[in-house]
Structure formats: structure tokens, C-alpha cells
């Protein structure tokens, strides 16, 4: 196996972008919980590890009037300790809290989870329903991409060679808006999702749903935004019948495969169950909000 030649820990975004764009085999390192495992399993070690955690823009969490800004390399543990983020985006922060064990939480980042491009990534669905955008720096400058467009297939993203995901920005939720995320794993912890579902709902003062977004994971080559499931919720009081219609829409949208983590039939069924339950939890949360 070819050996890694260098470890770099640039202090500026510009330096990181330069390192990544001049060497096609260099790889950005955030928590390393996917990168190190995969490079060992495939025996494809990068030529250079570009450690992002000493770049100020890449680490940290800020909640401001416009919403949330997550440095792409911020560890899950740091995010989960942020009380204001937990309060405003409980579903998103719970999803981030599901990334692996306590040990993994100390390393894994949302940016890494997204860039890994797994259809089963726990954070993607929650980012999508919260209308998150990724801020990308590259040799040609900065651009932003909606998270639902970020992943293009298993292990594939919109990132071009030399591009770097710098941060994720999430707009502040509207009044009476809340989110939730649920995943299905056989054990209580330490598994990759066999299916996942996130929902965000907005209620009017009478409790009628005026806006909703539903996204499902691990049931297609990428996480899917399911407008039909959202449509089933909008205009309802998020009663059982509406939740069931959303569940059916989610199951219908799912295009899963058979693998060691579950059968296609199973995934199609449970993604509906998860959608129903996640939307129900989001509804409860929204009702409790001013």
C-alpha cells in the first residue's frame, strides 16, 4: 500500500484550498472517522492529510439572527453541547448526536458526514428539511449549494477537485416550526441506519400545518426530499390520517436495495413508519412553540 507522504495542518482557508488543489491525492481530514477507516480498508491512503481543524472558519458553532453556522469540521460533541442550537433545531442536533459512539462524537463532523456521501448519513435528512446550504471554497472562489443537491450518488458529491466544504448554514426556523429525525437500527446504538426520516413542520396559530419538509435516508442512492410527503401534511392538523398519508408517500418514494443492513422490502416499509413518527414528534414540538 502506498504510504502517506505528508501531514499538513494549515491555519488558513486559502492554504488548505491551495494544498488540496495542487495535489489531487491529498484528502481533507476532519474527524477522520470515515476517511481513516476507508483508506485502511481500501488500502488507498491519501498522499497528504490536510487537517482542517486548525482553520478558524472550519471549526465552531454560531447561532445568530440569521440562523446557524456550523464549521464543517466541528465535532458532533461540541455541537450537541450547544444549548441554543439544541433548542432551535432539536431534530438536527439529535441527528448529529446519533453519529456513532461517544468516542466517535468526539471526532466526527457534520461536514465529514455530508462529504462522505453515504445514503445512510444520519445528518443529511435533517439538514435537508431545515433548508441547510453548504458553503464551498475552491480555487475559483466560494459558492453555496443546497444540501439536497450536495450528494449526487453513493460516495459522490458536487465537490470538484480542490473544493472544500467550509461550513453549513441553516436559516432560523419560522414561528411554530420544529423538526425531528428518526432512524432505524437493529441495536440501540453503534449501527448504520437501515432507514431514516426527518421532518420539519410549521403550524399556524390554529395548529394547521402551513409548511412542511420531509426527507428520507438509506432508501435510495442519496437522501431524498419527498415533496409528496410534505404535501400530505400541509393543510392538515397533523392528525393520524395526515401522518399516515405522509408515511405512504415516503414509502412510495423510497427506492431501496437489499444488503447486509436490511432488505429492500423492509426498508420501504419502515421508512414510512419513521416518517409518520418523526412528523408526529415535529408536530408535538411545533405545538409547544410560541
Amino acid at each position: 500500500m502506498p504510504q502517506t507522504q505528508a501531514y499538513e495542518a494549515p491555519r488558513t482557508l486559502a492554504d488548505a484550498v491551495r494544498l488540496l488543489s495542487t495535489d489531487g491525492h491529498a484528502r481533507p481530514l476532519a474527524g477522520g472517522t470515515d476517511l481513516l477507516v476507508q483508506s485502511r480498508a481500501t488500502q488507498k491512503l491519501p498522499s497528504t492529510f490536510v487537517d482542517l481543524k486548525r482553520i478558524p472558519e472550519l471549526v465552531g458553532i454560531e447561532v445568530g439572527p440569521d440562523g446557524l453556522r456550523l464549521g464543517a469540521a466541528t465535532s458532533a460533541a461540541v455541537i450537541c453541547e450547544h444549548a441554543e442550537a439544541r433548542r432551535l433545531w432539536p431534530g438536527l442536533v439529535e441527528a448529529i448526536g446519533l453519529l456513532g459512539s461517544t468516542q466517535i462524537q468526539g471526532r466526527a463532523s457534520v461536514g465529514g458526514n455530508l462529504c462522505n456521501g453515504s445514503p445512510a448519513a444520519d445528518t443529511t435528512c435533517s439538514l435537508i428539511v431545515n433548508r441547510a446550504r453548504g458553503v464551498i471554497a475552491g480555487a475559483k472562489g466560494e459558492r453555496t449549494v443546497e444540501v439536497e443537491r450536495f450528494t449526487t450518488g453513493p460516495g459522490r458529491t458536487v465537490l470538484e477537485p480542490g473544493d472544500l466544504l467550509v461550513a453549513l448554514v441553516v436559516p432560523r426556523p419560522a414561528a411554530r416550526t420544529a423538526d425531528a429525525y428518526l432512524r432505524l437500527i437493529p441495536r440501540s446504538e453503534m449501527d448504520i441506519a437501515a432507514a431514516g426520516a426527518a421532518a420539519s413542520v410549521t403550524l399556524d396559530e390554529r395548529g394547521v400545518c402551513t409548511a412542511a419538509r420531509v426527507a428520507i435516508g438509506a432508501v435510495a442512492p442519496t437522501a431524498l426530499l419527498v415533496p409528496a410527503a410534505a404535501d400530505a401534511l400541509i393543510g392538515s392538523r397533523l392528525d393520524d390520517a395526515a401522518l399516515r398519508r405522509a408515511a405512504d408517500a415516503a414509502s412510495a418514494a423510497a427506492r431501496p436495495i437489499d444488503d447486509k443492513r436490511g432488505t429492500a422490502v423492509y426498508r420501504k416499509t419502515v421508512v414510512g413508519v419513521l416518517t409518520r413518527r418523526a412528523a408526529g414528534i415535529a408536530a408535538e414540538r411545533a405545538r409547544a412553540r410560541p
Partner: peptide, 16 residues
């Protein structure tokens, strides 16, 4: 073998 690791072999963890 499709699951030669602790992640997908799924032994009980403390919370199980």
C-alpha cells in the same frame, strides 16, 4: 463475508 467487523456483526452494546 459481508460483515467482518464489529459495526455490522452487531454484538450487544451496553444500551441493548
Amino acid at each position: 463475508l459481508q460483515n467482518p467487523g464489529f459495526l455490522d456483526y452487531r454484538m450487544p452494546v451496553a444500551s441493548d
